[in-house]
Design a protein around this nucleic acid. Structure first.
Lengths: 218, 218
DNA sequence: TACTAAAGTTAGATCATCCTAACATCCATC
DNA sequence: GATGGATGTTAGGATGATCTAACTTTAGTA
C-alpha cells in the first residue's frame, strides 16, 4: 500500500513525462518544482520509490516510471477525474472548484468505490475539463490535440478540453459562456499579436493568443 | 488544520464519552484499546491535543473533550455518516461494507462538499445503521433507545437502529431480511436464556439474548 | 493502613517526510 | 578541452506518529 505522498510523486512523474506534453523525461528539480518541495526531499523519496521499483533512473540521470509505477499513477488519475466529474455533474460544483477536493478524494483506497462511482456516472470518457478518464483496464480515450489557435479563419469547431485548468482561466471561460461542447467559429486572426475574433453563440468576441493556445477543439 | 490522526483521537473520545453509552469518562488505556495503539502513544498525542485545547484532563486523571474538540469530533461523525448514507443509497454498497470506506472519506476537508452531499442525499436524519447524523448546526436527531430485548411479549415494534455494527452481525440481519424499518412482533421470551421468538414478515424465528440486545427499536 | 494490580507517564528509539547547507556531477560554451 | 552555472546528491537535523521498557501514581482490598 502506497502512502498519499508516494502516490503524489508518481502522479507528478506521470504528468511530467506525459508524451502529449512534449517532455518525455523528468529530473529531480522538475519534480521538486512541480510538487513544491526541495530537491533534497525529492531525492530521498526517489531512492525509496526506486527501491520499490516504481521508478527507474541512474545517478544524475533522468527519471522514468516503471510499468507498475505508471499503472498506479494512471489509477490515481482515474480516480481524480472520476471524482471531478462527480463533483461537477452530481454535486453541482463549478469546474474551477473541483481540483482541490479531487486531490484529496483521489487517494481513497477502495476499488469497489471507484468502480461503483464510474458506473453511477455512466462510465464517462472525459472529465469536466475535457481530460480523458483512464478506463479500469488502463486504456485512455483519445485526447483532443487541436489548439483553437491553429483553426483556420472561417472554420468552425467545438471546444473539447481546456489545456490550462487554473481557476482564473476557467472563471474567464465561464464569464464568456464557453464550456466543453461550445461551438466556435473563427472569424478573424490578427497577425500582429496572434489574437482572434470568434463567433460564440451569435456573440462576437476577441481573445488573446494565450487564450487561443489554452483551448483544445475538435 | 488537524491531521487525520488527531481527528481520529477526537472521534474516539466522542465515542468513549458519549452519554448514551453510559460511560462519561475515558482514560488513556480505553483510548489506546479503542484505537489499537499503545498507551504511551496515546499519552503523547493527548499532550498535544491538550496543548491545542481540544481535550482537558489532569495528570493521571480522566480525559474529556473541550467544546472545540467536541465540535470537531461531531463534524467528523457527520461526514462519516453522510458518506455511509451515500455509499448505501447511491452506490448500492451493503451496510456491512460502508464503514471502512467512510473511515477514509470522513477526513476529506471541504465544507462545501459536506453541505452539497447532505443536500444531494436530501438532508437525511439517520445513516444506514440507524445512527443519527449531526446537522450542520451541531444538533442531533433523537436516537432510538429501546432495546428489542426490553419489548414486552405480544408487543410490536419497528427496527430503528443497530447497536452492533460488526459485519458479522449485519450480514446475519441481512440473511434474516431484517433492516431499518422492519416490523417485528415479540411472540415469546424464554426466561431460561433470554432468547426470544419473533414474528418478522410472517416468518417465525428465534434469536438469542445477545441478538435482542443489539437491536434498537421504536 | 499498607500492598499490589491496574492505569498512566516518561525516556529513548524508529520511520516517513520534510528541511538547510554543503558537496558532486553534468554539459553548454568559450 | 577547461570551466561555471545548472542540476543532482549527501549529511545532518526537525517533526509527527508510533513503539518498548521502565518508572510513577492511583485505587481497591486484605
Amino acid at each position: 500500500m502506497l502512502s498519499n505522498t508516494e502516490e503524489n510523486y508518481l502522479k507528478a512523474l506521470l504528468y511530467l513525462t506525459a508524451e502529449d506534453a512534449g517532455k518525455k523525461e523528468a529530473g529531480t528539480n522538475d519534480l521538486a518544482t512541480h510538487l513544491g518541495l526541495k530537491p533534497a526531499t525529492v531525492n530521498d523519496m526517489l531512492k525509496r520509490l526506486k527501491e520499490k521499483e516504481y521508478v527507474s533512473y541512474k545517478k544524475y540521470g533522468k527519471i522514468s516510471l516503471t510499468r507498475s509505477g505508471k499503472d498506479i499513477a494512471m489509477f490515481v488519475m482515474r480516480k481524480h477525474r472520476l471524482w471531478e466529474t462527480f463533483l461537477c455533474e452530481v454535486l453541482e460544483f463549478s469546474w474551477d472548484e473541483v481540483h482541490e477536493v479531487a486531490e484529496q478524494l483521489e487517494h481513497i483506497q477502495s476499488d469497489k468505490l471507484t468502480e461503483r462511482l464510474d458506473k453511477f456516472l455512466n462510465y464517462p470518457d472525459y472529465d469536466p475539463h475535457g481530460d480523458p478518464i483512464p478506463k479500469s483496464n488502463g486504456k485512455m480515450p483519445p485526447r483532443a490535440t487541436t489548439l483553437l489557435s491553429s483553426v483556420a479563419v472561417q472554420q468552425s469547431c467545438t471546444v473539447a478540453a481546456v489545456k490550462d485548468t487554473s481557476p482564473v482561466f476557467l472563471q474567464y471561460l465561464e464569464q464568456l459562456s464557453i464550456g466543453i461542447g461550445t461551438k466556435i467559429k473563427v472569424l478573424e486572426k490578427i497577425s500582429f499579436d496572434g489574437s482572434m475574433t470568434l463567433l460564440v453563440e451569435k456573440d462576437k468576441l476577441t481573445v488573446s493568443e494565450k487564450f487561443a493556445n489554452s483551448l483544445l477543439v475538435d
